[in-house]
Design a binder for these strands. Structure first.
Length: 207
DNA sequence: TCGAAGATTGTCT
DNA sequence: GACAATCTTCGAG
C-alpha cells in the first residue's frame, strides 16, 4: 500500500518532454541531470516508463571507450547526429543498449542509460522479462531495461523529443544524492569517473 | 554470496 | 575472424 502511494506520487511528478536544448550541452552535465528524469517507450503493446537512476557518459572520439573512437562508421552514425536523438546498439549477440546523443552536431558523444526504477507499465515489463522476476531485476542494467521497455533497433536514430521513445522531466535529484563513479563493463578508459547514480537507490546495477 | 564461463550476432579489420 | 558499453546459469565455498 505504502509503495503504491509512493508510485502515485512519482507518476504525478512526471512532466514535459525534455527539449533539444537540454541535450545540447556538456555530456557530463547532461548525464548528471538525466538522473531523476523519466524514460518512456510506447509500443503496440502499451506504454512503459521508469525513472533514470544510473547513467554513463561517452565523450567523443578522444574517449577510447566511446564507439566513436573508431571514427564514423555505419554503426556510429547516430552519434554524429543532432542532440536529443537515440543511439541504440546491439551487443553480445543478444542485448540492446540505449543512449541519448548530446552536444552540438559533429561532436560524437552520448549518455548511456544503465538503470531505471519502474514507474508505469510494470505489468508489461514483467511479461517481457519473465514472471519469476523481482521488480528490481526488471530494469537494473542496460540490457535488461531495453527488454523491459521494448526498445530495439527500430528506435535507433529516432528523436527523443517526438517519440515513440521520449525522456520527460521528473524529480529533481539533489547534489548529495548523486554518486560519481568509474564506468562498468569496459576495458578501455574504465577508470574515468563518468558514471553517475542515485545514492541508496535499489535499482542501480552495481554500487 | 561470489566468480567463471557460455550464449550469440552485428560490426569492423 | 575477433571482439563487444551484458546477462544468466552453474558450481564452489
Amino acid at each position: 500500500m505504502k509503495e503504491n502511494a509512493a508510485l502515485t506520487a512519482r507518476r504525478s511528478r512526471i512532466g514535459k518532454v525534455l527539449p533539444a536544448t537540454f541535450y545540447d550541452r556538456d555530456t557530463e552535465h547532461v548525464s548528471r541531470e538525466l538522473l531523476g528524469c523519466v524514460l518512456e517507450c510506447t509500443t503496440a503493446e502499451g506504454k512503459a516508463s521508469g525513472i533514470i537512476v544510473e547513467t554513463e557518459a561517452y565523450i567523443g572520439e578522444h574517449d577510447p571507450a566511446c564507439h566513436a573512437a573508431a571514427g564514423r562508421t555505419g554503426r556510429t552514425a547516430p552519434l554524429y547526429g543532432r542532440p536529443g536523438i537515440a543511439y541504440v546498439y546491439f551487443i553480445y549477440g543478444m542485448y540492446w543498449c540505449v543512449n541519448a546523443v548530446t552536444r552540438a552536431e559533429g561532436l560524437p558523444s552520448a549518455v548511456l542509460i544503465r538503470a531505471l526504477e519502474p514507474v508505469t507499465g510494470i505489468e508489461l515489463m514483467r511479461a517481457r522479462r519473465g514472471p519469476a522476476r523481482s521488480d528490481r531485476e526488471l530494469t537494473n542494467g542496460p540490457g535488461k531495461l531495453c527488454i523491459a521497455l521494448g526498445i530495439g533497433r527500430e528506435h535507433n536514430g529516432t528523436s527523443l523529443l517526438r517519440g515513440p521513445l521520449v525522456i520527460r522531466e521528473g524529480e529533481r535529484v539533489g547534489g548529495r544524492d548523486v554518486v560519481v563513479a568509474s564506468r562498468i563493463g569496459i576495458k578501455k578508459a574504465a577508470d574515468w569517473p563518468l558514471r553517475w547514480y542515485i545514492r541508496n537507490n535499489d535499482f542501480v546495477s552495481r554500487r
